[in-house]
């Protein structure tokens, strides 16, 4: 990660730092100060000694707080789950000397996209404010994740890790463009897709009235009559999600609300470590 201060995260940029990386032949234009004279003495050839430079991380959370995020399972809501993921990751990031920020919201009456907006910063005081804001998140209104992503892409000036936490229960067609916008800004994008198994299996057994959490009209349906078509629609939807994330090279994590969030995060963190990710593969 690139940053203006030294942090824990290994930078993709080779430069002068403490940890040796490799030798390479000198080419005209290289900084002569970085010539390894000892090697020249032994081999009578010019080599440049390279070191891996550590840099700091800017992590921004885009949390969907639309009404559908208020979906409640037996012991938690989808937004609680999102809070847990965002809070934990923010804690780890800030304690690692990196910066973390928050952009959360849904479509509101006043036209504001973001319910909470906190640019990424480092330090313990900022962490306290960030965690407070995460705790205060409330679900409601229609989803506005797409405009939120576009707005965040414009607001975050430097390369950063963008962690999106959403149920993606909306029309997915414009999602590809939003991800491409983030990728164009050189952001590293992580997507936590939160779903409930009931939403996938649709295993209701008697007539049920479904109240739309985002304020739309309710629907009375006999699940036995529509179950098959519902599952087909879900299957198509998930396939579309897969296509989008593969195309945009998004670090995608599908999480079910009955799955401990620690496991989800562990899967994410292991995947982010190049060594562990390689061994996992």
């Amino acid at each position: 990660m690139l940053g203006s201060v030294s942090g824990r995260h290994r930078s993709p940029v080779k430069g002068s730092a403490l940890e040796f990386a490799q030798y390479r032949k000198y080419v005209p234009g290289d900084d002569t100060r970085r010539l390894d004279w000892r090697t020249w003495g032994r081999t009578d050839r010019y080599y440049i000694k390279e070191f891996e430079a550590d840099t700091n991380l800017r992590q921004c959370f885009i949390v969907d707080t639309s009404g559908s995020m208020g979906y409640e399972t037996t012991d938690t809501t989808r937004l609680d789950y999102a809070r847990s993921i965002a809070g934990t990751l923010a804690y780890l990031t800030v304690h690692g000397g990196d910066a973390a920020g928050l952009y959360a919201g849904a479509k509101s009456e006043d036209g504001n996209i973001f319910q909470q907006e906190l640019p990424p910063k480092r330090g313990g005081i900022h962490l306290g404010v960030l965690l407070d804001q995460i705790a205060q998140l409330k679900s409601g209104g229609e989803t506005a994740l797409i405009p939120a992503i576009h707005a965040a892409a414009e607001k975050i000036p430097q390369r950063a890790m963008i962690v999106i936490i959403s149920d993606l229960l909306f029309d997915l067609d414009p999602l590809q463009e939003a991800f491409d916008h983030l990728r164009f800004r050189k952001h590293d994008v992580v997507l936590f897709h939160l779903l409930d198994r009931e939403e996938i299996d649709f295993s209701f057994d008697r007539p049920t009235r479904f109240l739309d959490l985002e304020g739309g009209p309710s629907l009375l349906a006999d699940p036995s009559l529509i179950q098959r078509k519902y599952r087909e629609a879900v299957s198509d939807y998930l396939a579309q999600v897969d296509r989008i994330v593969n195309h945009s090279v998004i670090d995608y994590h599908r999480a079910f609300l009955d799955e401990p969030y620690e496991q989800v995060l562990a899967r994410f963190l292991i995947g982010r470590n190049p060594k562990t990710a390689r061994s996992a593969r």
Binding site: M69, L169, F170, F202, R209, F210, E214, E232
Partner: peptide, 15 residues
């Protein structure tokens, strides 16, 4: 009928 709060209305409407 029972009543539930439901998020995935888009699938229901399609089905």
């Amino acid at each position: 009928h029972r009543t539930v709060q439901w998020a995935a209305m888009m699938f229901l409407l399609d089905a």
